[in-house]
Design a protein around this nucleic acid. Structure first.
Lengths: 209, 209
DNA sequence: TTTTCTCCCTACCGATCGGTAAGGACGATC
DNA sequence: GATCGTCCTTACCGATCGGTAGGGAGAAAA
């Protein structure tokens, strides 16, 4: 409740960038959500580009810290993957918006500030490839094959997070809710089918014998 | 070489809509690609919305006819899935652009002409769910669970098609090319791991015993 | 030759975009 | 009380957007 204007603006901006994209969202529209003029927004962030950059940085920071935390908390690489996929890239409101922003970033391929949108994805992908190649299935794979597998898994979860509004409209609220309730288990099934099952509970952090 | 102006405009429009999105692409920019003015484009299509609609319709027609063709040509449902995923949603230039457009359509969630972007996706998804529920693995799944599985598979391939420019920039042309060469086999591995292997060649259309 | 149709042009319109300029309200500091 | 920085305002700017109005070139039809 005691959120600063700046934080409220960031929230509104994240929502609008996720829903309409960078060009589709206007700084006037974002500011209007709080009953402010666009110059109030410019006062806090300087320019639209800088505002967007701050949102990207927030996403990046969250992802990287999640990697570090999970890699130190969890031992089994397959459990690490499950935790990263189901935990970090979760399906909560803010997380889904972030997934949408990332998907747009990947789609747009624009040279925004020296590929600001991609430099921070690289360490995330590298870490995932690294983890995959530590699993029994992944040990036999080359770098490119492991990357292909990572992209598949990322796609499986991102696509779901991203297509929520469309799926809702297509199948109705209740059908979508039912599907959502099944999605984590289906995702776990996919990861295990492809990489081999994890011995115990996903977050247990099974010690390396 | 004897492509009509109209067809060339459609090609240019598809490319620009894929790269920049609906709002990012301008009709003046599309027409300029052929050295024409935007009124030349408006003469052929009437409005930007109608131009975009024609492109969506083209994608829709291609997808639906692929479903019909494959469902009649191939018997085994798992082989149908493989054929639809690896054949229809292929990774050629035009197909990739179509995948990008569809991804943007799914992301945007705008009410364009009574959800023009989604009505034609529905039968495609319905068909895929139908096919999945004919496989040994899918027979035990409810509608929602089967849909979740379909979204996973669609995500795995769409995400790859869509993130090509980003991946290229991140890992370099050669690494991307190597990954691309491995992708179909990795995708087949994913489908088989999740749905059970197909007895013989994927396109053989194994008769129902 | 005149008419008509196709295809494309220049010129212009209102709306909206991101951003600048200048200043008012208000609390803290001196 | 005067000064200063924070936060926000209205007013305005140039650029670009999709779309309209009207006309010119040129082939086909009369």
């Amino acid at each position: 409740m005691s959120k600063t204007t700046r934080e409220q603006l960031l929230d509104a901006a994240r929502r609008q960038f996720a829903n309409k994209g960078y060009y589709g969202a206007s700084i006037a529209g974002i500011a209007q959500e709080l009953g402010l003029s666009k110059q109030a927004l410019l006062h806090h962030f300087g320019s639209k580009e800088k505002l967007y950059g701050e949102i990207l940085k927030g996403i990046s920071d969250r992802m990287l810290s999640a990697i570090i935390r999970i890699r130190s908390d969890v031992q089994d690489p397959r459990a690490q993957l499950e935790a990263l996929m189901l935990g970090n890239l979760d399906i909560q409101a803010a997380q889904r918006e972030e997934a949408q922003i990332l998907m747009r970033e990947v789609l747009d391929n624009r040279a925004r500030a020296e590929q600001a949108g991609t430099w921070y994805l690289k360490p995330f992908l590298d870490a995932l490839v690294d983890i995959v190649r530590q699993t029994p299935t992944g040990r036999g794979l080359g770098q490119a094959e492991a990357l292909a597998l990572v992209i598949q898994l990322l796609g499986a979860i991102s696509y779901f997070a991203v297509s929520e509004p469309t799926l809702k409209r297509m199948f109705g609220e209740s059908a979508y809710a039912e599907m959502t309730s099944h999605y984590p288990e289906q995702l776990r099934a996919l990861i295990r089918a492809r990489l081999g099952g994890v011995s115990s509970a996903p977050f247990a952090g099974t010690q390396t014998a």
